[in-house]
Each structure stands twice: as structure tokens, then as C-alpha cells.
Design a protein around this nucleic acid. Structure first.
Length: 293
DNA sequence: TATCACGGACGATGCGCGAG
DNA sequence: CTCGCGCATCGTCCGTGATA
């Protein structure tokens, strides 16, 4: 951009110039749109010229539209997770972790870490939460265990401030959680150990939680995809399994306040779910035809 | 006319990750 | 570990069109 100060006057032209400069540096359109949005905010709250503000806004809109045409990075990651077997693959890795743990020295830090990874993975298959939330759950508060060896999960989401939960967790999830809880103690002590650790963090077994991003880093090491991708993966599963009711189920499963938020969690093309929907519809029609014949 | 679903616009904030 | 950049998600507002 020329050094002429006239070019620094906020306008549609300046917005596009900035965008072009950033685009040349391989910055993605969605980011350019966010930067311009920051400028819009500054001008709005700082009493900027309304005409100039509209100009920058238009430029920002241009990059928002551009961003919609560019595939997200996560799409490639999730497709490769799907190709590997999706949640089946993830549960396989849980089994691998458990086996690895058996081969490691008892009470070793590495063994504990592998058990932590298994617990996070199986819990994410059961209920995919945000990494920051996962890091903060405490035994006896968000994550509870009853005398029948059944674990339950309920928490207030940090991002939205709304409560969500999984209710009673799957039996296989409970087993893996018990394993992390017990380390190498006998199973009959489970409830006792649980009582002793009440109030402590479920992952560290200390009062202090790990870093917000730590659960995601651990998942990334094992799966090659960050924890947040599992939310998209599960939304895609729900769409394939039951396309008609998917929006409501996704909203509940991912803890959104509206069904619209779920649309952001989409790695598969619309056509995939539509094809699946059509396939099952065709199956239903075929069954009706047979029963009439 | 009231109501509702839907979707775009907008603003705010969370997450991943590499640098220091 | 902390910080900041780049990227992604989510809630709210509001206009539009369909429907009863």
C-alpha cells in the first residue's frame, strides 16, 4: 500500500486493500473478516464517520462471503477420522490405551497419563464437551459416581453459561473411569477411593485442574485431531443416523441453546446426509410396498 | 393480524498452536 | 508457562415470508 496517508482513511477501499495484503500473506478470508470486524467495532464505539463505517462493513461482508466458499481445515481432519472408522476407531484407541497401560510400570506417571487419555476419549465418545470444560470437572460435583458403579455427568458450560449433561454414562465409559480412579487398587475399593477424592479434579486427582487446552492436546497426540473436532464428528454421526431429528438431537448433545448453532458443526456435505435420508426413506417405502403386496 | 421458522448481520468470545 | 495470532463458534437482533 502506498505511504500516502489518504489511503489510511477508513473506507471500503481501505478494507479491500487490507484484505488483499493479508490474503497475499496466506491469511484466510474468515480471519480477514474478523480483523475488519475489529475495525468496525473500534469505529462504532469510537464514534467513527458513519459513511466510512459502512464502507468497512461492506468490505468485511465481502470477506465473510468469501470465507463461506473456502473449506474449513477441520473438514479434512474429520474426513480422515471418518475414513479410519470414526468413533469405532476412537473406541479402538481407548482399548489400545488400556492395553498400553497394562504394559507400563504400576503407578508410573506415563501409565497415569495413558489412563487419562483413555478416560477423555471414551467420555468424549459418550458426550463430546469443550476442552476447557473437560479440564475443570471435579469428582463429586460435575462427575459423580453412585454406589452401583454408575457414573453421571452434568455441568455448567463455561462458554455459554448454560447447564448440560450426559446423565448416566455408558457402562464402558464407567469402566474406563473406574480404571482411572482406581489406578491399581482393587475394584472393591472404588467407592471408597471416590469418596476420598471427592472435590478433586477428575483428571489430576488434585485440587487444581490441568490447563484448559491440555485435554485437547492429549487427544491430538492420540488421534491427530483436536478434541473439538469430536463435537463435529458426533454431529455428523447424528445427521447420518437420523437426519430428520438431527437438529434437536445435536442441540441437546452438544449443549447448544439453539438448533442453529449445530449447523457450524458440519464436516460432511449436505448431500451426504440427504442421500442417507433418502436411502432410509426408500427402505421404508419398500417395506410398506411389501406389506401391501 | 399474530405467530413462527428461517437465515443474514453483527458482536463477542473460545480454541489451537507456535514463539519466546 | 504465557502470550498473541489465526481460526472457529455462538448468542442476539432483526427482516422476510409462510401459515393459520
Amino acid at each position: 500500500m502506498p505511504d500516502d496517508p489518504a489511503f489510511l482513511v477508513p473506507s471500503y477501499f481501505l478494507g479491500i486493500q487490507l484484505g488483499t495484503l493479508l490474503g497475499d500473506r496466506e491469511i484466510r478470508p474468515v480471519t480477514i473478516a474478523n480483523y475488519l470486524q475489529g475495525l468496525v467495532s473500534l469505529m462504532r464505539h469510537g464514534g467513527g464517520d458513519p459513511v466510512a463505517l459502512e464502507g468497512i462493513r461492506s468490505a468485511q461482508q465481502h470477506y465473510v462471503r468469501l470465507a463461506r466458499r473456502v473449506p474449513k481445515f477441520k473438514v479434512t481432519r474429520i474426513r480422515s477420522l471418518m475414513e479410519n472408522g470414526g468413533f469405532g476407531y476412537i473406541l479402538q484407541r481407548v482399548t489400545d490405551c488400556q492395553r498400553d497401560a497394562n504394559a507400563l510400570p504400576r503407578y508410573s506417571a506415563l501409565r497415569f497419563r495413558v489412563l487419562q487419555a483413555a478416560a477423555i476419549l471414551v467420555l468424549m465418545a459418550n458426550k463430546p464437551a469443550r476442552t476447557g470444560d473437560v479440564a475443570h470437572w471435579r469428582l463429586g460435583h460435575e462427575l459423580t459416581r453412585d454406589a452401583n458403579d454408575v457414573w453421571s455427568l452434568r455441568w455448567t458450560q463455561m462458554k455459554t453459561g448454560h447447564e448440560t449433561g450426559a446423565g448416566e454414562l455408558w457402562p464402558e465409559t464407567c469402566q474406563v473411569l473406574d480404571r482411572l480412579l482406581l489406578q491399581d487398587k482393587p475394584a472393591r475399593l472404588a467407592q471408597l477411593v471416590y469418596t476420598q477424592l471427592r472435590g478433586k479434579n477428575w483428571l489430576t486427582h488434585h485440587p487444581s485442574p490441568p490447563a484448559d487446552t491440555w485435554p485437547s492436546m492429549l487427544v491430538c497426540e492420540i488421534l491427530g485431531a483436536p478434541l473439538h473436532d469430536l463435537r463435529t464428528l458426533s454431529a455428523d454421526y447424528i445427521r447420518r443416523y437420523d437426519p430428520a431429528n438431527a437438529p434437536g438431537v445435536i442441540q441437546s448433545h452438544l449443549g447448544h441453546r439453539s438448533t442453529r448453532a449445530g449447523e457450524e458443526y458440519r464436516a460432511l456435505a449436505e448431500g451426504d446426509a440427504a442421500a442417507e435420508s433418502w436411502r432410509s426413506l426408500r427402505g421404508t417405502l419398500e417395506a410398506i410396498r411389501r406389506s401391501k403386496a
